[in-house]
Simulated assay, not measured.
Amino acid sequence: MDKSLLTVLIVVFSFLSGSIPFGYVIGKLKGVDVRKYGSGNIGATNVSRVLGKKIGLIVLILDALKGAIPVLTVKYAGLPLKFQLMAALFAVLGHCFSPFLGFKGGKGVATGIGAFAVISPVCAGIAVAVFMLVFFITRYVSLSSITAVASYVIAFKFLVSSSDIYIYVALAGFVIIVKHYKNIIRLIRGEEKKYGVKTVS
């Protein structure tokens, strides 16, 4: 197959897979538009706050799978690491900028972990460990997510590859962190909500 056509197919398939808004769809099936409650995000954290932890866990798994499936497809097709990374990046972009939601979406953490865990389970394990440690200390999901993503990007550079294909990992990490910009502002201001802690009004 022509390389250009192959690239287009991978990009389109990965982007569409990542763009399926499971949090929004499951919320609507429950009669709730999760975008109108809590943080307004369609990701697992907000869904768990709005619809309960069990539903949030389902969304977390589905969001991770929609990132993992395109990468697994590319990997088992015997294509090089570059194409796997491309699939991972565009799955994340699909989640963050879903055409089904007017090119808006979630923050890409679960989809990113699902996608990039296929590529490097070791780096993903480091990221998950960092997430758990930061969350245990701070109870901030946003800060835990940001540091976990950053740790994957750094670990990949030193443990897997620092060649030109590293740009796909760096871009995915950059997009996910930028999507947390409101959380970052709230963290700086001391206004970010801790998970599982109710604030007194």
Rank of each mutant, 00 (worst) to 15 (best):
K179I: 06
F15S: 09
L51M: 09
I146Y: 05
G190L: 08
G106K: 04
V122E: 08
V11C: 11
A115F: 02
Y195W: 10
V34W: 01
S39H: 05
I26D: 06
G94S: 11
K36Y: 02
D33I: 03
Y76L: 15
A124E: 05
R35S: 11
A88P: 13
G18V: 09
V11T: 11
M1A: 14
L133T: 13
I69V: 15
G40V: 08
A172Q: 06
I26F: 03
L6G: 12
I184D: 01
Y181Q: 08
V74D: 13
G190C: 09
V8G: 11
I137C: 08
G196E: 07
V8K: 10
V59M: 05
R139H: 12
S4T: 15
V50K: 00
I113Q: 00
S142N: 04
K198C: 07
V109K: 01
G23L: 00
E191R: 10
L62D: 03
L85F: 11
Y166K: 04
F22M: 02
L62Y: 00
S144A: 15
A124T: 05
I58K: 01
L16I: 13
A172I: 09
I55G: 02
K179R: 15
R139P: 00
V122Y: 03
V175P: 08
L85E: 14
K193N: 13
F103L: 14
S98F: 10
P21L: 03
I185K: 09
N46K: 02
I61Y: 01
A64D: 05
F97N: 04
K104E: 12
K104Q: 13
F22L: 03
G102D: 07
V50F: 01
G23T: 01
F13M: 15
N183A: 06
L85C: 14
E191F: 00
N183Q: 03
V197F: 05
I184M: 07
H95F: 03
L159C: 09
V25Q: 07
V109W: 05
F158C: 10
F100V: 12
C96A: 13
M1G: 15
P70Y: 07
L79S: 13
V128G: 00
L60H: 01
G173T: 06
R186V: 09
K54D: 12
L133S: 09
V169H: 04
